[in-house]
Design a protein around this nucleic acid. Structure first.
Lengths: 194, 194
DNA sequence: GAGGCAATCTTGTCAGTGTCAAGTTGTGGA
DNA sequence: TCCACAACTTGACACTGACAAGATTGCCTC
């Protein structure tokens, strides 16, 4: 009776948790987190309206799980970066490939504050960013390495956010956003004037 | 019977529209737009549950009005900027002083697309930003003036967003965020190496 | 100043939602 | 085989946004 079941069904539904997560990501990417309805997700998965609660407790739990997953993915992406500029490019790429995760990750009022899984995966991502910053030679960053990280994060985060909100459609035009960001990043980190 | 009425009462309530806007800004600043309830706002203003609808039509209308007001305020702030760095500082200051406006302004899925008031006030803000960019001497910005504007906007927007989300508490610490941003801005726009 | 009109607000209602409690079904281990 | 537990269902409740229709109030005109 189910629509898209992954052939095997170890439990009643198959993998309801994943099914609901995926459906939620679709909805959020299309219409934002506020358009999310647990009952609608249950309907899409072909289960009863209260089934999602067993996997995520409540709405906040679902969104927290999404955010945690997002930070894990982001940490993985940044961890493989060659240098800081590459890390920024990967940050922007992550936001474009996982817009729903990205939105939820930075909407703290939608998340469960003390959640362990969220805290650890966020720490992982922060560490990855710190690692990329510390790889920059001292003459490339300013006097304060901490602020160099803030600058890089701000630039990448702002660009990604504005991009997803279609605020840069005119300025970026047909160009590849990642290439545009490379230009921005090279404006930020270049040797100080003689 | 009303709690805080501005002495005069030109209509039934006084100024219900403003009262609801103000209450909405309080709620959003505290718990985000998703915590907003029209019925709750009506309760706070001491009116019936359907009263807000007459001023804003629906939830989207209320949020659209807030966004339009925000872009108007932002345009005014940036319009008075001395140079691009100052415009960035004012952008960050605006976000800190009007966090609710700022959040809503950049949540397009919560807004009425074609709204006239929103479109015009947003255009005003965009023009103000463009003006600040064009005031930068050519050697300070890169080859493409358009991209210089994108870089400045991205840096300011990212910094403001991360700041409001308490993602920079550790890095900024006790320092004045505006001063921190000045440092970031001077990293972005400095003469090209010889 | 009296009457009418439109803006403002109220009352009532409906479908939809999140969340809780209690019951049912299926699974894997002893 | 049986039992404990996880996965899910059913039912209920308070709350919400939205709509329709009615009541009230201030203003404008004559």
């Amino acid at each position: 009776m189910s629509t898209t079941r992954p052939t095997k069904s170890p439990y009643h539904h198959g993998d309801l948790r994943r099914a609901i997560l995926t459906a939620a990501l679709d909805v959020i990417a299309a219409d934002g987190p506020s358009a999310l309805s647990l009952r609608d997700l249950a309907r899409r998965a072909g289960v009863s309206h209260a089934a999602p609660a067993h996997h995520f407790k409540d709405r906040t739990g679902l969104l927290t799980a999404i955010a945690a997953e997002g930070f894990g993915l982001l940490a993985g992406a940044i961890g493989e970066a060659a240098d800081l500029k590459d890390a920024g490019v990967r940050y922007v790429r992550f936001a474009r490939e996982h817009p729903a995760h990205f939105q939820v990750m930075f909407a703290p009022e939608l998340l469960r504050d003390g959640d362990l899984e969220l805290t650890t995966s966020r720490a992982l991502a922060t560490d990855a960013l710190r690692g990329a910053v510390s790889a920059v030679p001292p003459e490339g960053r300013g006097p304060d390495a901490r602020l160099a990280g803030v600058a890089a994060w701000s630039l990448a985060h702002g660009f990604a956010t504005l991009l997803l909100g279609h605020n840069l459609d005119g300025a970026v035009g047909e160009r590849d956003p990642e290439e545009v960001f490379r230009v921005l990043a090279s404006m930020l980190f270049r040797p100080a004037p003689a």
